[in-house]
């Protein structure tokens, strides 16, 4: 039981830290992509390619570079989380109603004022939606950390697989699925809340 709690905590911690990094980097790159269209296409294509690489292959390759441990897992999670966040940020910022941007410009706002006071607040529901998708994915992918010496619930699952013990696999798997479904549900609610204020 203590082992399960500890593993769950570790799992959540790894995912949470990676998500914070991924959000900062992803939103930043998303804003950049919305400003420079060419560069944006390049950034998103790269993120798409990263997303396409099989998770086992990416993890193994990262392990060669960064060695075993939590850091490598974190980097993998950040890389996988980037695409939905970048894409949603970029789409949200480029598809803002032109009338609103026009009004902001007409009121004499500078580019950075427009961004912080008008554009980002309006884009938040959609950005949040991207973070939700990334988070739910990450919870599932983090299970593979066990293969590269990182902690979390994957360890319990993998030991169950090696022992061919269904109960053990389930003990590790159920928290993963329940947590993922919970975040999916809760963040969808928050997303709806957020969007009622902006539309």
């Amino acid at each position: 039981m203590r082992e399960l709690l500890f593993a769950t905590g570790e799992h959540l911690l790894i995912v949470a830290l990676s998500m914070i990094v991924a959000t900062l980097v992803g939103v930043g790159l998303g804003i950049l992509s919305s400003w420079k269209k060419r560069l944006g296409t390049v950034i998103i294509t790269i993120a798409e390619i990263v997303q396409t690489i099989p998770s086992l292959a990416l993890l193994a390759l990262l392990m060669i570079i960064f060695g075993l441990g939590n850091l490598t897992m974190g980097i993998a999670l950040v890389l996988y989380a980037l695409l939905p966040i970048i894409r949603n940020t970029q789409v949200a910022l480029t598809e803002l109603p032109p009338a609103i941007i026009d009004a902001a410009r007409g009121m004499g706002m500078s580019r950075s004022q427009r961004l912080t006071q008008v554009e980002i607040p309006l884009a938040i529901p959609m950005i949040f939606g991207g973070i939700k998708v990334a988070l739910v994915n990450s919870l599932s992918i983090a299970v593979m950390g066990v293969l590269i010496g990182s902690g979390g619930l994957g360890y319990i699952i993998y030991r169950g697989i090696q022992q061919r013990n269904m109960a053990r696999i389930l003990i590790g798997a159920i928290p993963v699925v329940v947590i993922a479904l919970f975040f999916d549900w809760a963040m969808t609610k928050i997303e709806q809340r957020l969007s009622t204020h902006t539309t």
Binding site: S55, S140, M144, I169, A173, V176, V177
Partner: peptide, 18 residues
């Protein structure tokens, strides 16, 4: 969509045991 949240490793574990 619920099935999709089950990690691949877990699904393969099930397949292995079953």
């Amino acid at each position: 969509s619920m099935v999709q949240t089950i990690p691949g490793l877990v699904m393969l574990g099930f397949a292995l045991v079953l």
